[in-house]
Nucleic acid binder design. Structure first.
Lengths: 355, 355
DNA sequence: TTGGCCATGGTAAACGTTTACCAGAAGGAC
DNA sequence: GTCCTTCTGGTAAACGTTTACCATGGCCAA
């Protein structure tokens, strides 16, 4: 169904229909009413791609995340979505699952669909891809230390702040053997967290040598704790590069019958909603997903609406801070050296579902 | 940058460029090579909206979920995305957050963007909205008992199967006071789960009267357990309408110092990835998100590619089954009636993050 | 009455593709 | 050499909008 169809039935021209629909004030109220009547009767919806074609604006924002199944991201996506509906935008979501090929196809898809802007929340993206976007003048916003390409909005995250609080919190609880479970090495954001950890440790005269790398997922957290416990002088506290890792640690500790927080203090990072519901509830570094999404969206919106990308708008900073819950406690004066008895049950109980 | 620009530089017509790009075999290999060279040099990407306009196909599928922050959905979205890239589709995601207004705008957006099909994974949608879509001949696929509109593909979920297994499992562990924490009442899917519970209980001669309603979120699970424990004859086992609810139950039990599974057996539903990482790991009814997404996607794909919507393809069934982990155990012969001592800490510890 | 100005709506071009249709070249048969 | 066929590539219309530009008609002033 056409705008022409509407025009025919309302006995006006397509121009008038278009004007009526877009509420151009110069159109006679009588005519407008006639047009709207037909529109409603026929259940006509304008074709956005035709409109986009002539307007040169698609009203679509791209959102590239690294892994939608990591609960960190859905919270961002939801806020982004909320803002999108409010502003009459769509969001084109891609999840790169850390795969370079997928990153490439993400970027390609964004360009082919002629999105009006892209928010990049995946961290290991090749610079060449980003330049590809920049060359087409697609407004871009980066979260975190993106490659330092001039003219691209960056939301810097102040990791140090929150991580320093976490480390000092642990130190105040008399922990000295504090381990860090890092994220995937190629991720800049993971690197930044790790750097913040090292800096914070050194600040208070502790050596940040207990570092093992995970994968920002629960599985990695489990393995990391396993590894940490093999050490002769295993830590009394672990700081994790993200909450999912911490959840894995909690889980592995349960298997090993290590009591949290009595035997081991655990701190996460991100403060995803879930962190309030772990057992025990997770002390973690907060970084507001909501604010993050909001800043990203508005940065894009401004750039496309104003056209201008004033340089002072190009740097945003997101603060982080510690939120205390129940996964941290005073370090034991002397931690028992005996290997804790595992209560891991036989594998055979993990019956796969019939299918 | 245009197809015309390419044509000019390659010294051919736009028709040839189009044909070369789309790999039409009748075009001379020499010419094709010339075209591709220019395309690569200029970094040209076809404009999909122009293409969609003339083709009458947008290569976009709509995906309406009820709450992207519920971990159940991201797993579906991921699979959907995977299939989308493979088949050169985009997905237009909307999250209705149980808001009728958002459902309406979801549908409107889908239509305006001229999606080629819609998968509906939100459950309380008004029939009128659905008919709106059907009237425009948009291929539709429903998960679960959608309204019974003929000509719309339905993925029926066999709840009874899995829930019966769960109930029988609990009964075999000598539980007789088995409670059910239902989902939001207006959700048909939640209703179906509840019905399956009631039927399964009756089958083995137990009365399904211990039912309290939650919200399919962790908060609701916590409240529900609170309520259940107020009862004089509180249950020794709880079956939850979804895993998030179960996670809430676990969490509340922790606060109340109720040991899982010794004092209380807990069973979830959905088998989200997280269920393997709760404490204790959650026994739950499995329903493969992956399969679900796959079926939904393929149903849509077939309908748009074949055009035909053969009726036998209109009904799919997804099986469910129990997966045993560690949140269930033998019922205590006599459960202590004493109220368990809460170990809930003072509220003041829940320090909000600085901001 | 006539000329000019405003207000309003219509005509048609443009956005960037695809493809039906056609034109021209090449080659073969007579 | 002429005609027919085949193969390949070009011309132009179409997809559904928006909007610059123009036409019309009404009103007022002289």
């Amino acid at each position: 169904m056409d705008i022409r169809e509407i025009a025919r039935r309302a006995k006006v021209s397509t121009a008038t229909v278009s004007r009526a629909i877009n509420r151009v004030p110069t159109v006679d109220p009588q005519l407008a009413k006639r047009v709207w009547k037909v529109v409603d009767e026929l259940g006509y919806y304008p074709n956005t791609q035709a409109r986009a074609l002539v307007l040169g604006r698609s009203r679509i924002f791209g959102l590239i995340v690294s892994e939608i199944t990591n609960p960190f991201f859905p919270e961002i996506v939801q806020t982004f979505e909320d803002l999108a509906v409010k502003n009459n935008y769509e969001i084109l979501l891609t999840s790169t699952v850390h795969d370079p090929k997928r990153m490439e196809s993400s970027v390609r898809r964004m360009i082919e669909r002629r999105v009006d802007g892209v928010a990049i929340l995946t961290f290991g993206m090749e610079e060449s891809l980003i330049e590809h976007l920049r060359d087409r003048k697609v407004p871009l916003v980066f979260v975190d230390v993106g490659p330092n390409i001039p003219g691209i909005a960056n939301i810097r995250i102040n990791y140090l702040n929150g991580i320093r609080q976490a480390v000092q919190h642990l130190a105040a609880l008399r922990h000295t053997r504090i381990a860090f479970i890092a994220g995937p090495q190629r991720l800049k954001s993971a690197g930044a967290r790790r750097d913040a950890f090292e800096a914070s440790m050194k600040e208070i005269g502790l050596s940040p040598d207990l570092i093992v790398v995970g994968d920002h997922r629960m599985e990695g957290g489990m393995n990391a704790l396993l590894e940490l416990n093999k050490l002769s002088d295993s830590p009394t506290a672990v700081l994790c590069s993200n909450d999912m890792t911490a959840i894995g640690v909690l889980r592995e500790a349960y298997d090993q019958n290590i009591k949290i927080p009595e035997d081991l203090s655990v701190v996460g990072f991100d403060n995803i909603h879930l962190a309030e519901f772990t057992i025990p509830p997770l002390t973690t570094v907060q970084m507001s997903q909501h604010d993050l999404a909001k800043i990203a969206f508005n940065a894009l919106l401004q750039e496309v609406e104003d056209g201008s990308s004033s340089p002072e708008r190009h740097n945003y900073e997101l603060v982080t801070g510690l939120v205390l819950r129940r996964s941290t406690a005073l370090a034991r004066s002397r931690r028992s050296a005996a290997t804790p008895t595992p209560n891991r049950v036989a594998k055979s109980r993990k019956t796969p579902a019939p299918q």
